[in-house]
Computed example of a mutant assay.
Amino acid sequence: MVDAIADFLAMLAAERGAAANTLAAYRRDLVAAQAVVGDLASADGAKLETLGQAWRDLAPSSVARKVSALRQFYGFLIDEGRRTDDPTSAMPRPRSRRPLPRLLDHHDIKQLFSHAEQEATTHDAPGLRMLALLELLYGSGLRATELVSLPLSAVPRDAPLLTIAGKGGQQRMVPVGKRAGMALSAWLAVRPSGGKHVFPSPGGGHLTRVRLFQLLRDLALRADIDPARISPHVLRHAFATHLLEGGADLRVLQTLLGHADIATTQIYTHVDAARLVALVNLRHPLAEGAAGGHAPRLTGARHIPSAKP
C-alpha cells in the first residue's frame, strides 16, 4: 500500500538521513514494483517472482538497485511487525560488478586546466567562475551537488578548508589547495552580489548540476578534448586516482571523498596496480636493490607521474 511506502521513506529520512534524491529513487522503484505485483505490503513470493520478467530488459545494476530497495522495504515491514516473513528470496539476484570509473590522465587534466587558465586571464566573470569550478572539482574532489549548492558560509576567511554537507546531510571538512583557493578568491571578487551561494544563478538560486555539466562539456570542446569523456564525476574520479598515485592513504581518501564505506573508495585501487608492483620491487626484502635482496624484479611497473596538473 502507498502508506507503507510512505512510512518506509519517512524512516529513511528520519533515521538514516537519506537525501531527497535518494528518497525519490526509492519511491520510483517501489511504486514501479507495486504497479506490477499489486499491494507491496501484502505481496507474496509468487508475485515478486513476476518482477524478473518485468525487469528483463534492464541492466544488471538497475535490477540490483531495485532488489535492494525491495529488500530494505520488507525488512522495514518485518521490523515494524507488519509482516512475519521475507518474500524477497523469490526475486532475481543479478551479480553486477561495480563499473570502473572513466579516467582522465595527467595530460588531459593539464590540457583542460591550461585552457581554463587562459580564458580566466581576461578577468571576466564566466572565465573566473569556470576556473573556480574546475579547481574545486579536481582539486578537492567535490560531488557536483556539493559544488553547485556550496553556500558562502562554507568558505572561511582564515582557514583553507570548506565545510561540506554531503550525502545524508553528513558534514565533512575538505581542504582547499593554494591553486583552488586563489581561483575561488578571484571568482568571489567578481561574483554578482546577492544570494547565499558561491555559484549563484540569475533566478536567485544556485547553478544547477545540468548547467555545470554543460559548462564542462563546452570547456572540453574548446580545449580539444572529447566532451563525452568529461563530467563532474569524472573529475572527482581523477582527483581520487591521482591522489592515490601520489601516495595518499586510502582511509584519508575515504574521508576526503565523504564515503561512508571504504569499499566504495577501494574501487580506485585498480588504477594503482603499477605503483604497487614498483613498491614491491623497491621495498620487498627479496627484491633486487633492497638490502640483501637478490630475487628477480617483478615486471609491469611503469613510472607514475606527479599528481599535479
Rank of each mutant, 00 (worst) to 15 (best):
L9Y: 07
L9C: 05
S149I: 01
I164N: 09
D108R: 08
F73G: 07
A183H: 05
L188V: 01
P202L: 13
S185G: 10
E288K: 14
G205K: 08
A180H: 10
A154Q: 07
A278K: 02
L152C: 09
A273D: 09
H197M: 10
F213Y: 15
L207G: 04
H270F: 12
L253A: 11
G258K: 05
L253S: 10
A120N: 05
L136C: 11
A238Q: 02
L137D: 02
T88L: 13
A307E: 03
H284G: 01
M11S: 14
E135F: 14
N281L: 00
P101F: 02
D158A: 15
A159P: 00
A46D: 07
R98S: 14
F76P: 05
A35R: 11
W187D: 04
D249E: 12
G300A: 07
R217K: 15
K178Y: 11
A33G: 08
A144N: 01
V176T: 13
H107E: 15
G45A: 15
R143V: 09
R297E: 12
L9R: 03
S193C: 00
G127R: 01
F213R: 04
P160K: 10
H115W: 10
Q214L: 13
D272Q: 14
D86M: 12
L30P: 01
A19W: 03
A46V: 10
H237N: 07
P227Q: 05
M182F: 08
K167R: 13
R65S: 13
R179G: 13
S61P: 04
T84W: 07
S153N: 02
T299K: 08
P232T: 06
A116L: 07
D261E: 03
V234G: 03
A273F: 14
A43F: 04
A260V: 10
D261N: 15
A165R: 12
Q111F: 01
A165V: 15
S89C: 10
R209F: 04
S114N: 06
H106M: 13
D105W: 08
P94Y: 07
Y268K: 11
S89T: 13
A41F: 04
D224M: 00
V277A: 03
A64S: 15
L253P: 05
S42F: 08
A165G: 00
T88I: 15
I262H: 04
A4F: 00
A278D: 14
L276G: 12
Q254M: 04
L12Y: 09
M1P: 02
L112D: 09
L12R: 10
F239M: 06
R222E: 14
H259Q: 01
L279T: 14
A228K: 11
G166T: 08
L212H: 10
G203K: 11
R82Q: 10
G141C: 06
L142H: 10
G38K: 09
V155Y: 02
I5W: 02
A43C: 09
H233G: 01
G141H: 04
A189S: 13
R157H: 11
F8N: 05
G203Y: 05
L136E: 06
P60E: 11
T22H: 08
K308R: 15
A220D: 09
S140R: 03
M91Q: 02
L276E: 08
R93E: 00
L112P: 05
M130D: 15
A144F: 04
A240Y: 07
Q53I: 07
R65H: 13
P60L: 08
L257M: 04
A33N: 01
A90L: 01
H206D: 00
S96D: 09
S201D: 12
